[in-house]
């Protein structure tokens, strides 16, 4: 019963390792190195990488930027909550904020074009989650993150919140419409 007894060999660290074990350690180490390498490789060759661009901000400052975009580019209003749908110029900076309990506003983008999407929270932490494609990012108050998105399909995408933010968590939905 040696796992529960002191090792039988006095100099146990010099006992040679058996083949099944030695080979496995080698294989496992190679696999781990490979998995490590995949992350930097994807940064170079892959198309889905979260940007590192983020700034400290304040809720009021961010709100002003959102309002400016909404005032300039709203094309219609929707739902009983009167959510503005914004159609920003291709390639421009677009903004979306999370607050208890709404994503604001909705966006209309063009397929295959890139936009710089700015995200921040007005109050607590929220989870920006694009469905049904299932892209997810954490949104923090006081931080403005910027990611360049390039929608590759046309259609209607729903933004939901997947960081718990209180009893109204499940009300937080908005849309990104992607047109041809």
């Amino acid at each position: 019963m040696s796992t529960i007894l002191p090792p039988s060999d006095v100099i146990w660290w010099k006992v040679p390792v058996d083949r099944s074990e030695g080979l496995w350690v080698g294989i496992a180490l190679l696999w781990c190195l490979f998995m490590f390498a995949m992350m930097p490789i994807w940064h170079i060759y892959g198309n889905q990488n979260l940007s590192n661009e983020a700034y400290r901000t304040h809720p009021e400052v961010f709100q002003d930027k959102v309002n400016a975009m909404v005032d300039a580019h709203t094309v219609r209003k929707e739902t009983q909550w009167n959510v503005p749908v914004v159609k920003p110029p291709v390639g421009s900076d677009v903004y979306m904020l999370g607050k208890k309990w709404q994503w604001y506003p909705a966006l209309e983008l063009k397929k295959g074009e890139s936009y710089r999407l700015h995200l921040s929270s007005m109050d607590w932490q929220h989870g920006f989650s694009v469905q049904p494609i299932n892209i997810n990012a954490q949104i923090l108050p006081g931080y403005e993150s910027v990611m360049t998105i390039t929608p590759n399909q046309a259609g209607e995408f729903t933004i939901i919140c997947n960081e718990y933010c209180g009893v109204g968590h499940h009300f937080m939905t908005s849309k990104i419409y992607v047109t041809e």
């Binding site: 739902t79 909550w81 959510v83 469905q131 049904p132 997947n162 499940h170 009300f171």
Partner: peptide
């Protein structure tokens, strides 16, 4: 989760939200 269902979430049908959303 692979289909996008959120964790820590009371209502996967989003009752009362401005935009309805239905999971597959």
């Amino acid at each position: 989760g692979t289909m996008g269902v959120a964790r820590r979430h009371w209502d996967m049908a989003f009752t009362g939200a401005p935009y309805a959303f239905e999971y597959p």
